[in-house]
Amino acid sequence: MRIEELREEEFVCGSFACAGCGAILAVRLALKVLGPETVVVTTPSCLLGVTTFYPQLAFKVPCVNVPFPATAAAVSGLVAGLRRKGRENVRVLGIAGDGGTVDIGLQALSGALERGDRFIFLCYDNEAYMNTGGQRSGSTPLGASTATTPVGRGAKGEDRPKKDMLRIVAAHNIPYAASASIGYPADYIRKLEKAVKAGGPAYIQVLTPCPPGWGYRSDLTVHLARLAVQAGQWALAEYEEGAWRVKEVSNPRPVREYWALQKRFAHLLQESGGEG
């Protein structure tokens, strides 16, 4: 499917997402690919907060909200319930942020992946707990300043590398796992289509820059989502039938170019005298 072939119909509208929110763009594109016969399962997160605060329902598809650790477990329940009711045509899309996926949601996700249910799990990765004000998660990159990894004397931001969630997911030997970026929508859409056709659990972790969380101007979201890939800070990878494919970067950029646009990395450039 090419971008021009995406359906016109919108399935997310009237959300309270921030200007320049990468996550809402990722969800918008995902639902355009999955279509109306879909149920969204999500957790208390930015996404819940901006889409389903009663009486608001910013989805044109049903939405089931569950506790923070429970996304994938509830997904399993819905898959079983819909199958039992003869409505397995309804696609079950679990959506969680990075915290709800790689931290508190990891156990339930592992269980659901291992059980082999047919569903799609979308992790929108903005690299910290943005809904609660930007505390670090297991998905926060090395060096990033967050509310709980502040910069100060003897503290240089996040001191551990980002959790390699894609490999953890792939280790479950599921039919399809991929990382994507909203800065590469054609690639992202192609991966969503593959996830739909996977016939078993499919996982996509999509990079969704966050203007308030990362500290940048709201018109730079897509630019940063591209630059992250070009600067080697985000890989566009795919795991399919036991094999890895990683998109080669044709126009690599220096990492400082990526860092320089975001407050969360400002201390790294000051430290290296702008030469980083």
Binding site: A73, V75, S76, L78, G81
Partner: peptide, 18 residues
């Protein structure tokens, strides 16, 4: 894989109508 998930899965199946 846990009781938390047991009830979450029951919840998901119940809202599906089962």
């Amino acid at each position: 894989e846990s009781e938390h998930s047991a009830l979450a899965a029951c919840y998901g199946a119940a809202v599906a109508g089962a």
